[in-house]
Design a protein around this nucleic acid. Sequence first.
DNA 1: TAATTTATACTACAATGTAGTACATATAGG
DNA 2: CCTATATGTACTACATTGTAGTATAAATTA
Lengths: 110, 110
Amino acid sequence: MESNKNLGEFEMLVLAAILRQGGDAYGVSIKQDIEARADRSPSLGALYATLARLEKKQLVRSTMGEATKERGGRAKRLYTIEPLGQRLLEQSILALRNMTDGLVSWRFGV
Amino acid sequence: MESNKNLGEFEMLVLAAILRQGGDAYGVSIKQDIEARADRSPSLGALYATLARLEKKQLVRSTMGEATKERGGRAKRLYTIEPLGQRLLEQSILALRNMTDGLVSWRFGV
DNA sequence: TAATTTATACTACAATGTAGTACATATAGG
DNA sequence: CCTATATGTACTACATTGTAGTATAAATTA
Protein backbone atom coordinates (compact mmCIF):
# COMPACT_ATOMS: atom_id res chain seq x y z
CA MET A 1 0.00 0.00 0.00
CA GLU A 2 2.80 2.36 -0.93
CA SER A 3 2.34 5.93 -1.98
CA ASN A 4 0.84 5.55 -5.41
CA LYS A 5 0.53 8.75 -7.31
CA ASN A 6 1.47 8.29 -10.93
CA LEU A 7 4.25 9.98 -12.83
CA GLY A 8 3.87 11.40 -16.31
CA GLU A 9 6.07 10.16 -19.10
CA PHE A 10 8.27 13.25 -19.22
CA GLU A 11 8.50 13.32 -15.45
CA MET A 12 10.00 9.84 -15.59
CA LEU A 13 12.66 10.95 -18.05
CA VAL A 14 13.57 13.95 -15.91
CA LEU A 15 13.74 11.95 -12.68
CA ALA A 16 15.89 9.33 -14.37
CA ALA A 17 18.29 11.97 -15.68
CA ILE A 18 18.65 13.48 -12.22
CA LEU A 19 19.29 10.08 -10.71
CA ARG A 20 21.89 9.29 -13.36
CA GLN A 21 23.84 12.46 -12.69
CA GLY A 22 24.06 11.99 -8.97
CA GLY A 23 24.22 15.52 -7.62
CA ASP A 24 25.47 17.42 -10.65
CA ALA A 25 22.14 17.66 -12.43
CA TYR A 26 20.86 21.07 -13.49
CA GLY A 27 18.63 22.38 -16.27
CA VAL A 28 21.05 22.24 -19.16
CA SER A 29 22.69 18.93 -18.24
CA ILE A 30 19.33 17.26 -17.77
CA LYS A 31 18.20 18.50 -21.16
CA GLN A 32 21.38 17.18 -22.76
CA ASP A 33 21.07 13.78 -21.14
CA ILE A 34 17.51 13.43 -22.38
CA GLU A 35 18.57 14.50 -25.85
CA ALA A 36 21.38 11.98 -25.95
CA ARG A 37 19.54 9.00 -24.53
CA ALA A 38 15.85 9.47 -25.19
CA ASP A 39 16.22 11.04 -28.61
CA ARG A 40 14.07 14.06 -28.06
CA SER A 41 14.64 17.76 -27.50
CA PRO A 42 12.46 19.34 -24.89
CA SER A 43 12.67 23.09 -24.62
CA LEU A 44 14.27 24.45 -21.49
CA GLY A 45 10.97 26.12 -20.67
CA ALA A 46 9.23 22.77 -20.66
CA LEU A 47 11.96 21.29 -18.54
CA TYR A 48 12.02 24.00 -15.89
CA ALA A 49 8.26 23.90 -15.55
CA THR A 50 8.44 20.18 -14.92
CA LEU A 51 11.30 20.55 -12.46
CA ALA A 52 9.29 23.12 -10.52
CA ARG A 53 6.35 20.73 -10.31
CA LEU A 54 8.50 17.83 -9.22
CA GLU A 55 9.97 19.95 -6.46
CA LYS A 56 6.56 21.14 -5.34
CA LYS A 57 5.50 17.50 -5.05
CA GLN A 58 8.69 16.82 -3.10
CA LEU A 59 10.02 14.27 -5.54
CA VAL A 60 13.23 16.27 -6.00
CA ARG A 61 15.14 18.86 -4.01
CA SER A 62 17.29 21.71 -5.30
CA THR A 63 20.10 23.92 -4.08
CA MET A 64 21.94 26.79 -5.71
CA GLY A 65 25.37 25.85 -7.08
CA GLU A 66 28.57 27.62 -6.10
CA ALA A 67 28.89 31.00 -7.77
CA THR A 68 32.69 31.15 -7.84
CA LYS A 69 33.50 29.39 -11.08
CA GLU A 70 35.64 30.44 -13.96
CA ARG A 71 32.76 31.06 -16.20
CA GLY A 72 30.21 33.74 -16.81
CA GLY A 73 26.50 33.47 -16.34
CA ARG A 74 23.97 32.89 -13.67
CA ALA A 75 24.40 30.22 -10.98
CA LYS A 76 23.10 26.72 -11.57
CA ARG A 77 20.27 25.23 -9.58
CA LEU A 78 21.35 21.68 -8.75
CA TYR A 79 18.80 18.90 -8.40
CA THR A 80 18.83 15.66 -6.44
CA ILE A 81 16.13 13.04 -6.28
CA GLU A 82 14.22 12.45 -3.04
CA PRO A 83 13.42 8.97 -1.72
CA LEU A 84 9.78 9.43 -2.64
CA GLY A 85 10.75 10.41 -6.16
CA GLN A 86 12.95 7.38 -6.56
CA ARG A 87 10.24 5.11 -5.23
CA LEU A 88 7.64 6.46 -7.63
CA LEU A 89 10.06 6.20 -10.53
CA GLU A 90 10.79 2.59 -9.69
CA GLN A 91 7.10 1.78 -9.47
CA SER A 92 6.33 3.40 -12.79
CA ILE A 93 9.20 1.75 -14.62
CA LEU A 94 8.34 -1.60 -13.11
CA ALA A 95 4.72 -1.29 -14.19
CA LEU A 96 5.80 -0.55 -17.74
CA ARG A 97 8.17 -3.49 -17.74
CA ASN A 98 5.50 -5.82 -16.48
CA MET A 99 3.27 -4.71 -19.32
CA THR A 100 5.85 -4.85 -22.09
CA ASP A 101 8.35 -7.57 -21.23
CA GLY A 102 7.92 -10.75 -23.18
CA LEU A 103 5.84 -9.24 -25.94
CA VAL A 104 6.26 -11.01 -29.24
CA SER A 105 6.89 -9.18 -32.50
CA TRP A 106 8.79 -6.62 -30.57
CA ARG A 107 11.21 -4.74 -32.72
CA PHE A 108 14.01 -4.45 -30.19
CA GLY A 109 15.14 -7.36 -28.03
CA VAL A 110 12.60 -8.57 -25.52
CA MET B 1 13.12 11.15 -38.83
CA GLU B 2 10.30 8.83 -37.86
CA SER B 3 6.95 10.01 -36.67
CA ASN B 4 7.78 11.36 -33.28
CA LYS B 5 4.75 12.33 -31.31
CA ASN B 6 5.00 11.27 -27.69
CA LEU B 7 2.76 8.91 -25.82
CA GLY B 8 1.48 9.57 -22.32
CA GLU B 9 2.22 7.11 -19.57
CA PHE B 10 -1.28 5.68 -19.42
CA GLU B 11 -1.45 5.51 -23.19
CA MET B 12 1.60 3.25 -23.11
CA LEU B 13 -0.06 0.90 -20.66
CA VAL B 14 -3.20 0.71 -22.76
CA LEU B 15 -1.34 0.11 -26.03
CA ALA B 16 0.75 -2.59 -24.39
CA ALA B 17 -2.35 -4.33 -23.07
CA ILE B 18 -3.94 -4.30 -26.51
CA LEU B 19 -0.81 -5.69 -28.07
CA ARG B 20 -0.61 -8.42 -25.46
CA GLN B 21 -4.14 -9.59 -26.09
CA GLY B 22 -3.79 -9.85 -29.84
CA GLY B 23 -7.29 -9.20 -31.12
CA ASP B 24 -9.36 -10.02 -28.08
CA ALA B 25 -8.82 -6.76 -26.27
CA TYR B 26 -11.83 -4.76 -25.15
CA GLY B 27 -12.57 -2.31 -22.34
CA VAL B 28 -12.95 -4.72 -19.49
CA SER B 29 -10.12 -7.06 -20.47
CA ILE B 30 -7.71 -4.16 -20.92
CA LYS B 31 -8.63 -2.83 -17.52
CA GLN B 32 -8.06 -6.24 -15.95
CA ASP B 33 -4.70 -6.68 -17.62
CA ILE B 34 -3.53 -3.31 -16.35
CA GLU B 35 -4.78 -4.14 -12.88
CA ALA B 36 -2.97 -7.45 -12.83
CA ARG B 37 0.35 -6.33 -14.27
CA ALA B 38 0.73 -2.63 -13.57
CA ASP B 39 -0.84 -2.68 -10.13
CA ARG B 40 -3.32 0.11 -10.61
CA SER B 41 -7.04 0.41 -11.13
CA PRO B 42 -8.11 2.92 -13.71
CA SER B 43 -11.83 3.56 -13.92
CA LEU B 44 -13.55 2.35 -17.05
CA GLY B 45 -14.44 5.95 -17.82
CA ALA B 46 -10.78 6.89 -17.87
CA LEU B 47 -9.96 3.91 -20.02
CA TYR B 48 -12.64 4.51 -22.64
CA ALA B 49 -11.69 8.15 -22.94
CA THR B 50 -8.10 7.13 -23.63
CA LEU B 51 -9.16 4.46 -26.12
CA ALA B 52 -11.22 7.03 -28.01
CA ARG B 53 -8.22 9.35 -28.20
CA LEU B 54 -5.90 6.59 -29.36
CA GLU B 55 -8.33 5.68 -32.11
CA LYS B 56 -8.72 9.29 -33.16
CA LYS B 57 -4.94 9.50 -33.50
CA GLN B 58 -5.04 6.25 -35.48
CA LEU B 59 -2.82 4.36 -33.09
CA VAL B 60 -5.49 1.68 -32.63
CA ARG B 61 -8.46 0.42 -34.59
CA SER B 62 -11.72 -1.02 -33.29
CA THR B 63 -14.53 -3.24 -34.51
CA MET B 64 -17.73 -4.39 -32.86
CA GLY B 65 -17.59 -7.95 -31.54
CA GLU B 66 -20.07 -10.66 -32.50
CA ALA B 67 -23.42 -10.20 -30.82
CA THR B 68 -24.40 -13.86 -30.75
CA LYS B 69 -22.78 -15.07 -27.58
CA GLU B 70 -24.22 -17.00 -24.69
CA ARG B 71 -24.20 -14.05 -22.42
CA GLY B 72 -26.23 -10.96 -21.75
CA GLY B 73 -25.16 -7.42 -22.22
CA ARG B 74 -24.03 -5.06 -24.87
CA ALA B 75 -21.58 -6.08 -27.60
CA LYS B 76 -17.88 -5.64 -27.03
CA ARG B 77 -15.79 -3.18 -29.00
CA LEU B 78 -12.59 -5.02 -29.89
CA TYR B 79 -9.30 -3.17 -30.27
CA THR B 80 -6.17 -3.91 -32.25
CA ILE B 81 -3.00 -1.90 -32.43
CA GLU B 82 -2.04 -0.14 -35.66
CA PRO B 83 1.53 -0.12 -37.02
CA LEU B 84 1.92 3.52 -36.07
CA GLY B 85 0.79 2.75 -32.54
CA GLN B 86 3.25 -0.07 -32.20
CA ARG B 87 6.06 2.07 -33.52
CA LEU B 88 5.36 4.88 -31.09
CA LEU B 89 5.09 2.43 -28.23
CA GLU B 90 8.43 0.92 -29.11
CA GLN B 91 10.07 4.33 -29.31
CA SER B 92 8.68 5.39 -25.96
CA ILE B 93 9.67 2.20 -24.19
CA LEU B 94 13.11 2.31 -25.73
CA ALA B 95 13.64 5.90 -24.61
CA LEU B 96 12.69 4.97 -21.07
CA ARG B 97 15.03 1.99 -21.13
CA ASN B 98 17.90 4.07 -22.37
CA MET B 99 17.34 6.45 -19.51
CA THR B 100 16.92 3.88 -16.76
CA ASP B 101 19.01 0.85 -17.70
CA GLY B 102 22.22 0.54 -15.80
CA LEU B 103 21.23 2.87 -12.99
CA VAL B 104 22.92 2.05 -9.71
CA SER B 105 21.05 1.80 -6.43
CA TRP B 106 18.12 0.56 -8.35
CA ARG B 107 15.76 -1.45 -6.23
CA PHE B 108 14.84 -4.06 -8.82
CA GLY B 109 17.43 -5.76 -11.01
CA VAL B 110 19.20 -3.47 -13.44
C1' DT C 1 28.86 50.11 -17.66
C1' DA C 2 27.57 47.79 -21.82
C1' DA C 3 28.07 43.47 -24.16
C1' DT C 4 28.23 38.63 -23.79
C1' DT C 5 27.42 34.27 -21.70
C1' DT C 6 24.97 31.15 -18.97
C1' DA C 7 21.07 29.90 -16.74
C1' DT C 8 16.47 30.18 -14.43
C1' DA C 9 11.52 31.99 -13.93
C1' DC C 10 7.06 33.20 -15.68
C1' DT C 11 2.99 32.66 -18.49
C1' DA C 12 -0.32 30.65 -21.37
C1' DC C 13 -2.22 27.06 -23.69
C1' DA C 14 -2.47 22.08 -25.53
C1' DA C 15 -2.61 17.26 -24.50
C1' DT C 16 -3.34 13.61 -21.40
C1' DG C 17 -5.29 11.57 -17.07
C1' DT C 18 -9.33 10.64 -14.42
C1' DA C 19 -13.78 9.43 -12.77
C1' DG C 20 -18.85 10.09 -12.41
C1' DT C 21 -22.93 9.53 -14.72
C1' DA C 22 -25.77 8.27 -18.34
C1' DC C 23 -26.95 5.29 -21.92
C1' DA C 24 -27.25 0.97 -24.89
C1' DT C 25 -28.20 -3.82 -25.72
C1' DA C 26 -28.15 -8.54 -24.78
C1' DT C 27 -30.56 -12.57 -21.98
C1' DA C 28 -33.94 -14.53 -18.73
C1' DG C 29 -38.33 -15.04 -16.24
C1' DG C 30 -42.97 -14.24 -15.39
C1' DC D 1 -44.51 -8.54 -24.07
C1' DC D 2 -42.35 -6.15 -20.26
C1' DT D 3 -39.13 -5.47 -16.84
C1' DA D 4 -35.17 -7.00 -14.22
C1' DT D 5 -30.43 -8.07 -14.56
C1' DA D 6 -25.94 -8.36 -16.65
C1' DT D 7 -22.54 -6.50 -19.50
C1' DG D 8 -20.37 -2.97 -21.76
C1' DT D 9 -19.72 1.66 -24.03
C1' DA D 10 -20.29 6.87 -24.51
C1' DC D 11 -20.47 11.46 -22.71
C1' DT D 12 -19.00 15.23 -19.85
C1' DA D 13 -16.28 17.95 -16.92
C1' DC D 14 -12.36 18.98 -14.65
C1' DA D 15 -7.39 18.07 -12.85
C1' DT D 16 -2.74 17.20 -14.06
C1' DT D 17 1.04 17.07 -17.08
C1' DG D 18 3.39 18.51 -21.46
C1' DT D 19 5.21 22.26 -24.08
C1' DA D 20 7.41 26.31 -25.70
C1' DG D 21 7.89 31.42 -26.03
C1' DT D 22 9.33 35.27 -23.67
C1' DA D 23 11.29 37.66 -19.97
C1' DT D 24 14.51 38.04 -16.40
C1' DA D 25 18.76 37.29 -13.51
C1' DA D 26 23.57 37.16 -12.53
C1' DA D 27 28.17 36.29 -13.59
C1' DT D 28 32.61 37.60 -16.69
C1' DT D 29 35.04 40.56 -19.83
C1' DA D 30 36.32 44.53 -22.39
